[in-house]
Design a protein around this nucleic acid. Structure first.
Ligand SMILES: [Mn+2]
Ligand SMILES: [Mn+2]
Ligand SMILES: [Mn+2]
Ligand SMILES: [Mn+2]
Lengths: 229, 229
DNA sequence: CTTGACTGTTCGATTAATCTAACATAAAAT
DNA sequence: ATTTTATGTTAGATTAATCGAACAGTCAAG
């Protein structure tokens, strides 16, 4: 419907105009860091589509249609911003910039669900506790908190598993290039694997991941930590 | 550095080429649903920047630089996709499309944190339980699960509060336009409010939210459910 | 070898978004 | 009331991304 940039113009006008402030071309130009001529151009398009009213040299006014569209965009912005700040702990300034990019790419349904998720997290002290204590700890130190490990299960390297044994991947500890390779093969924390075949000397090791057969070098298997299933 | 569309070309080449398949212009055109001439154009730019090697009428090959860039993009795609599917419960096809839009707007730091969050959620059965049971219930029926309410606190309408009393907003139950207005004023579930002044007949009600003074009509206050602080 | 049938390339045109520079109007200061 | 300053508009140019149509190359079947 509207291009991403036009959505941003609408959003800016909406935010600048809260509290009934008159919004002028210059305000929008400053806010979006573009030249005034660029704004004039954008406003012309928005006017043609019925989102704003603007007389030469006058204030920019949102129509009903404009307000609806703008608040829909801004709600998304806010939901994404809140998620980034409250759940992930991204600094506000960065979160704001990223939210304003992302907002144009999520659909009605996703936006609604994300808003609900934020609301839910604010309402649920238990969830908050896990996020603010356990997740932050995991993020900062890589420590897997106690509440995550089930009782009586041993942590092993993938190389220590026997043929036929099933396990859950818990941690991958190696450099970016290997990690990235493992990732594209679907080997990520939380996934269940099964050892299919081990060659003499333990290289390569054939495993089953989500129904796919994969062959890992010993070097790769060595850095995958698993928990017996 | 690279435009959003060029990142997508790189990502496509990377995915089409996994397992050492040769990638041709036609494959990319089909995957991204553009014309072959458009692909030729894009590949030329990617070649100039040293991301791919392509001889006329030949296969498209990623350089080392290209592989690094492409996998960085794809990792983001995967992290966002996983979040949408596993946490929010968005259908896979939609999640895939949205992830491919969003991936270009999140920074290194955010991407890493999001990946960690997904990992963490897969590792932590307690978090999974809250998301899969309590959040889904909240999402589908609006029911605030038991684990979220603290003992011995009463739920009230905002209109039932007395001057000076503090409370936490728990739920907003009204139509989009009012909800949107309340939202832009910072009244969202989880936020703390305090009643400042109530006019005769209870309209308007002045409240304090995050340090700001707001004046609400009775109609608006009526649909805000709160819990005594 | 010749000849289709794909596959790939070139060229020119279009659209959205932006800029600069020159010009026009409105508001404020003198 | 005139001049100055700030604000807004226009016109023309540029860049990225796309397309369609015409042209060119590859390769396997006959
Ligand atoms: Mn935006
Ligand atoms: Mn925004
Ligand atoms: Mn993409
Ligand atoms: Mn993608």
């Amino acid at each position: 419907m509207l291009s991403m940039t036009l959505e941003d113009y609408l959003e800016s006008i909406f935010l600048l105009g809260r509290g009934r402030n008159p919004v002028r071309i210059t305000d929008v130009a400053k806010k979006l860091k573009v030249k005034k001529s660029t704004v004039v151009n954008a406003i012309r398009k928005l006017q043609q589509e019925g989102f704003v009213i603007h007389e030469r040299y006058g204030d920019i006014l949102l129509t009903q249609k404009g307000i609806e569209m703008a608040s829909r965009v801004y709600e998304r912005h806010l939901a994404i911003f809140s998620f980034l700040v409250e759940i992930l702990g991204v600094p506000e300034e960065i979160a704001n910039k990223e939210a304003c990019g992302i907002e144009h790419y999520i659909g009605e349904e996703t936006a609604k669900t994300l808003s609900l998720f934020i609301e839910f997290s604010r309402l649920c002290p238990q969830l908050q506790k896990i996020i603010y204590e356990d997740f932050r700890k995991y993020k900062n130190s890589g420590t897997i908190p106690d509440i995550c490990s089930e009782e009586g299960k041993k942590m092993l390297k993938l190389t220590q598993l026997k043929v036929g044994q099933k396990a859950i991947v818990k941690k991958i500890d190696c450099d970016r290039s290997i990690k990235s390779r493992l990732l594209t093969m679907g080997i990520v924390p939380g996934v269940e694997i099964q050892v299919e075949k081990v060659a003499p000397l333990g290289d390569p090791i054939d495993i089953l991941v989500r129904g796919y057969h994969l062959s890992l070098r010993r070097e790769e298997a060595q850095c995958i930590e698993v928990e017996e299933a």
